[in-house]
Structure formats: structure tokens, C-alpha cells
């Protein structure tokens, strides 16, 4: 059970929190939309991978699985490749540039101070520009917030990948702003 009394305990992860506090749900959803589906030199699939990877490092199952599912939806990959994110991307095709950016995201997950000039230079050597670097660091920082929000309030999360299939499709193709709270309640 969550640490606070949510109006609908059946809603998993951040969805139950959006329902609890609509005043903060608005900007949080807009932030996810802008970061993951707005303008960026990185594709939405690549950005969802960064989000899912950071969430995995934070051990936040809900965010890892839902954003992993969104990434698979963007790439047209099988849902179960979500697990490959935990295994260091052995199957999912990751460009050298994205690999360097994922390394930076992993540093941000630990601390902003862990990012070194060498990490940045390595990403630039693989073709990353200012905006790639900026967006990667901000996505990793934002998921350091989202993950803490979801886990810090003790929300629950479905275990199986399958439970995230439709959620990921919706996150990928409908987006985050018109995210229907009720739809998730029916699904899980």
C-alpha cells in the first residue's frame, strides 16, 4: 500500500499520484511530453530508452517497464526486449553515440557531479551535439525525480511486462498530456 491514502488504490505507479494531486500532474505530464516527445535531435525511442535505463538503475520497476514498453513501441520491437535494457543492451541496436549518452545518463543517475569532461568528450567523438548532451542529462535528471516520486510514496507496480503493453503504446503514440487516468485503471 502506498504511504499516503490514494483515492484509487488500483491505479499503479505515477498514475495513482496524478489522480491524487491534479495540480502537480499537469506540469509533470507536460514535462514528460516535452522531454520524450517534443523537439530533440534524439528520437523518441532513444529518449524512452534513456528514461527506462535510468529507472532501471534506480530500481523503479514501474517507470522502467512503462518507458521500456514505450521504447519498444517506438522501435517496433517485441515487448520482452524491455529486459535487454537491464542486460546492458545486448540485443537492442544501440548506436555508438547513444551508448555514450547512456553512459552519461548512468552518471547523472548517481550524481550530477559524476559526469566528467571525458564522458562528454567521448559522446562528442561519437557525434553527439550540444542538444543531444543537454537532453540526455535533463532526461536522466527528470527520471531521478520521477523515480523518487513513484518509490518515495510507496506506489505499487504490476510485475509482468505484458501489463505495460498498452500503456507503452499509449505513451509512445498518444503521448503524456492527454493521458487518461481511467484507461490505466481498466487495463491493469
Amino acid at each position: 500500500m502506498a504511504h499516503i491514502a490514494l483515492p484509487d488504490e488500483s491505479l499503479p505507479g505515477i498514475v495513482g499520484l496524478f489522480n491524487f494531486r491534479p495540480e502537480t500532474a499537469g506540469p509533470l505530464q507536460l514535462l514528460a511530453e516535452t522531454l520524450l516527445r517534443g523537439e530533440s535531435p534524439l528520437t523518441s525511442g532513444e529518449r524512452e530508452l534513456i528514461a527506462s535505463y535510468v529507472s532501471h538503475l534506480n530500481d523503479t520497476h514501474f517507470c522502467h517497464s512503462s518507458h521500456g514498453s514505450a521504447a519498444m513501441a517506438h522501435f517496433g520491437y517485441d515487448l520482452n526486449l524491455i529486459d535487454d535494457i537491464k542486460n546492458g543492451f545486448e540485443v537492442i541496436e544501440v548506436s555508438p553515440k547513444l551508448r555514450a549518452l547512456l553512459h552519461i545518463a548512468g552518471k547523472v543517475q548517481k550524481s550530477g557531479k559524476a559526469v566528467t569532461d571525458e564522458d562528454i568528450a567521448a559522446a562528442r567523438a561519437e557525434g553527439a551535439g550540444d542538444k543531444d548532451i543537454h537532453d540526455t542529462i535533463l532526461i536522466a535528471a527528470a527520471f531521478s525525480m520521477f523515480n523518487r516520486y513513484v518509490d518515495g510514496l510507496g506506489t505499487w507496480a504490476p510485475q509482468e511486462n505484458e501489463a505495460y503493453r498498452e500503456m507503452g503504446q499509449r505513451m509512445a503514440f498518444t503521448g503524456y498530456v492527454r493521458y487518461s487516468v481511467q484507461a490505466d485503471a481498466e487495463e491493469v
Binding site: 550530477g112 542529462i137 535528471a141 531521478s144 525525480m145 520521477f146
Partner: peptide, 14 residues
């Protein structure tokens, strides 16, 4: 607290 984990990482990560 979560939001400042975002800000702190954004500010120092960059």
C-alpha cells in the same frame, strides 16, 4: 525532494 534531485543533477551534470 524529487524535484531538487532533478535540479541538482541538471545544474551539476551540465
Amino acid at each position: 525532494a524529487g524535484l531538487f534531485c532533478l535540479y541538482n543533477r541538471y545544474v551539476d551534470g551540465m
